[in-house]
């Protein structure tokens, strides 16, 4: 079995004084693509942020790339976050920067690459995500789907070890969904990182995944390959896949 990059061990977590995740344990291995699947109130967004080390658990242990985010110093956290790319449900592009500058920001901040190399890397990512035509536009001028693709390009530009995508389907039309599936497939073929994404509806994108982590009301229902998921003996899971 390959190396573990994310481990959640009996983790419970809360948000705004409400416990949203209870006693969850699972591991994600290097190079694996995992979808956190569940309805809107299943706590998958919080689980994803725990996986990225952006939240500390109320109890239990989280380890991300051999680090414990709850006990890490600020410097260690900053170093960890350079190795984890995160796409929020909202695109969260910096509103007073062009799309190009948004994607160049982590490179300009963390590296000492010359501007020519930064430009090359940013343009490669923009082209890969299909938003190179919008590079000089401001985020407010983009559709939600394009802004999310730009946010994906920004998360990928540092070549992270782990790529986390929240609400992967949000704002995508049918064409954009196909484009995203191709991006993720290409990304995986290139031997790139572990992918963890949250999904709240049945989609062809699940076929790209190695494993699904099925969640309901903040609890783990099952983990299984996509093909076996509809067979899981749980009414929520069966309803979920029947709605396809």
């Amino acid at each position: 079995m390959s190396e573990t990059v994310i481990t959640l061990d009996h983790v419970s977590a809360s948000e705004r004084d409400r416990t949203l995740v209870e006693d969850i344990s699972f591991a994600v291995y290097r190079g694996e693509a995992v979808a956190l699947v569940g309805s809107n109130a299943s706590g998958k967004g919080l689980v994803l942020r725990l996986c990225a080390g952006l939240e500390a658990p109320a109890s239990g242990t989280v380890r991300v790339l051999d680090a414990d985010p709850a006990r890490a110093t600020e410097e260690q956290l900053l170093a960890l976050r350079q190795r984890v790319g995160f796409v929020f449900a909202q695109p969260a592009l910096i509103s007073n920067m062009t799309v190009f500058n948004n994607i160049a920001l982590p490179l300009r901040y963390h590296t000492v690459f010359p501007e020519t190399e930064i430009r090359e890397r940013v343009l490669a990512r923009l082209t890969e995500c299909g938003v190179d035509a919008f590079r000089d536009r401001m985020p407010a001028d983009l559709t939600l789907g394009d802004a999310r693709q730009a946010a994906l390009a920004r998360a990928m530009v540092m070549d992270p070890d782990i790529l986390c995508v929240d609400e992967v389907l949000l704002g995508l039309d049918a064409d954009e969904l196909v484009r995203l599936r191709k991006i993720l497939e290409r990304y995986r073929r290139a031997g790139r990182p572990t992918i963890v994404a949250t999904v709240n509806a049945p989609t062809s994108l699940l076929r790209v995944m190695d494993r699904l982590v099925l969640l309901r009301d903040g609890r783990l229902v099952a983990t299984c390959p996509p093909a076996e998921a509809p067979l899981v003996d749980d009414p929520m899971v069966q309803d979920f896949f029947e709605s396809q």
Partner: peptide, 22 residues
């Protein structure tokens, strides 16, 4: 404040960009 609402601050934090420094 608007950056907080738009999750831009959270995005900077997630990119490992120090909010104090930046």
């Amino acid at each position: 404040g608007n950056m907080q609402v738009g999750q831009e601050i959270a995005a900077l934090d997630a990119m490992g960009i120090s909010l104090i420094r930046f």
